[in-house]
Each structure stands twice: as C-alpha cells, then as structure tokens.
Amino acid sequence: MTGADVLLLALGAVAVGSGVLVVTTDQLVRAGLYLVVCLGAIAGLYLVLTAELVAWVQVLIYVGAVVVLLLFAVMLTRAPIGRSPDLNRPGLPAVLIGGGAGLGLAVLFADAFRFTKVDLPSPGNAEAIGTELFRSWVLPFEVLSVLLLAALVGAIIVSRPDIGSRP
C-alpha cells in the first residue's frame, strides 16, 4: 500500500458513498449537494491519477456549471424543501439491475487486474494534453464545438413555447 493507494481508497470511498446517497436520499436539494461531494471526490481521484487538466475541467464544468444547472432545475420545478415521499418507484428491479451491473463490473475488473502495480507517470501534463488534442484530435474537437452550438440552439427552441414545437 503506497500513499497513492491510500488516497485512491479514501477518495473512492467518499465518491461511492456520496454517489449512493445521491440516488437514495429523500431530499431533492441534498441530492444535488451530495452530487457536488461525489464529483469533487472524483476530481481528487483524477489528481491522484496525474490527470490534472481533466481534474480542473471537472471542477469547473461539473461542480461549477452542471450542478448549478441541476439546482436551478430543482428550484424552477418548485421542488419542496424537506422530505418528499414520492420520489421513488418500486425498488426491486432497480436493485437487481443496478446492483447486478455495478457488482458484475466490479468483479470483472477485480478479476482482470488483481493486484498488479503500475508506476504513475510524472504529473504536470496540461501541455502534453493540449499538444495531443490539437495534433491528433483536431477534427473531433471542432465537431464537438458544432455539437455544443446545436445543443445551445436546441435548448433555446425547446424551452421557448412561442417559437418551438408549435405549428
């Protein structure tokens, strides 16, 4: 057990624990706040895995933007503050499929990797990622910008009843 292993275990426990709380809690706003904890722990995992650019993008976009959007949606749909008894559907199929997928994948990974050790590469790779992004992945990058524009226009049209979806 090296220091990186201990950090990975601790952050992973925080991520899985708060992730389970996101899908089991009775209170809508708390689900959003547990999601912040979970995404922050995953950003910490990225840092330990020496993916520092991905970690900071995760903090900026997920914790900064996506969670704020989700909390806006919680407020705009007039969600009650406090416990909501009607958030869940019958649980047995969800437990079967979700638990089966999670535990099955976990067993698969554990069996595939056992306790092999890997040396972490040296940290500080924002420049390397940028070079790779604009050398090998330029076309997907540009296509992604077009997709973002399309999503923006689509969101505006869907959310304005006077210009969208009416004949």
Binding site: G19, G91, V95, G98, G102, L105, A106, L120
Partner: peptide
C-alpha cells in the same frame, strides 16, 4: 498504484447510476 482501486470505484459508481435511473 494499484489500478484495480479506481476501476472498482468506477464500476460501483456506474451501478449506483443505473440504480438511480431505474428507481
């Protein structure tokens, strides 16, 4: 660094996500 730790964490998170979508 043992890669099995983040892999298993990711698998369990995925299971929690599937559970949440269905539940």
């Amino acid at each position: 660094m043992r890669p099995v730790i983040p892999y298993v964490v990711a698998a369990l998170l995925f299971g929690a996500g599937v559970y949440g979508v269905l539940r």
